[in-house]
């Protein structure tokens, strides 16, 4: 239980997808103009990560890993399908994203239009695929651990995008040099936030 909680906290702050690994930058930079849309996108990312990581975990554990098919028949013990893991993970992610897209379109057309192209792009949001690949690499011991990792990473991403959106809403009242306004200053602020977050790197949980 404690282990699961540790993984959760760790994936929010120490292994933050945005500030520690710089994953999922594109939608992070482009859809962080207002707090409202960023909350929407952040929630979508939590949802997608929270589902795809455990699903990919099961897939990896019972189908793809070397010897994973043993539960079907003892003769499958030597089958190693791990060369398929990349495309399988992507397929799961893409179908989940498509699902989210349909749900958002149905229940919140305003959010749907403000997210624009970046909703389908969650599918290639490196944070999502990164989540699944990290899960495979770090060899989590149980489904609960994988789920808590997925959710934690999502929450970390959510916090990061809401944080930058809040800064961007305030910065609108400042006198930023015209060519730097908007995107330019956002890049620089993100870089500075990243440097600040590096101080978490040494913490061991």
């Amino acid at each position: 239980m404690q282990e699961i909680f540790n993984i959760f906290i760790k994936s929010i702050f120490i292994d933050n997808m945005i500030f520690a690994y710089f994953l999922g930058m594109c939608s992070y930079l482009a859809v962080s103009k207002t707090v409202k849309t960023s909350v929407g996108l952040g929630a979508a990312v939590i949802f997608v990560l929270g589902i795809t990581v455990p699903v990919d975990y099961m897939l990896n554990e019972y189908i793809l890993k070397a010897g994973a098919l043993e539960w079907l028949d003892a003769s499958f013990v030597n089958v190693d399908l791990s060369f398929l893991s990349f495309i399988m993970f992507i397929a799961i992610i893409a179908s989940m994203v498509q699902l989210v897209e349909m749900i958002v379109e149905k229940f919140s057309p305003a959010l749907y239009s403000s997210l624009g192209i970046f909703l389908p792009l969650i599918a290639v949001n490196c944070a999502i695929l990164g989540g699944s690949l990290f899960m495979q690499e770090r060899e989590y011991q149980s489904l609960a651990q994988a789920t808590s990792f997925g959710l934690g990473s999502g929450v970390g991403w959510f916090l990061a995008i809401v944080g930058i959106a809040a800064i961007r809403e305030k910065i609108r009242y400042s006198d930023v040099p015209a060519p730097l306004r908007g995107l330019g200053i956002t890049f620089i602020i993100t870089g500075l936030m990243g440097i600040a977050f590096m101080s978490f790197l040494g913490i061991k949980l």
């Binding site: 710089f22 040099p177 015209a178 060519p179 730097l180 995107l183 330019g184 200053i185 956002t186 890049f187 620089i188 993100t190 870089g191 500075l192 990243g194 440097i195 590096m198």
Partner: peptide, 16 residues
């Protein structure tokens, strides 16, 4: 990596 972001920021500044 953070410095890459800042370099991009500066490139945007120059470009614009």
């Amino acid at each position: 990596p953070p410095m890459a972001l800042i370099v991009v920021g500066v490139i945007i500044w120059v470009q614009r």
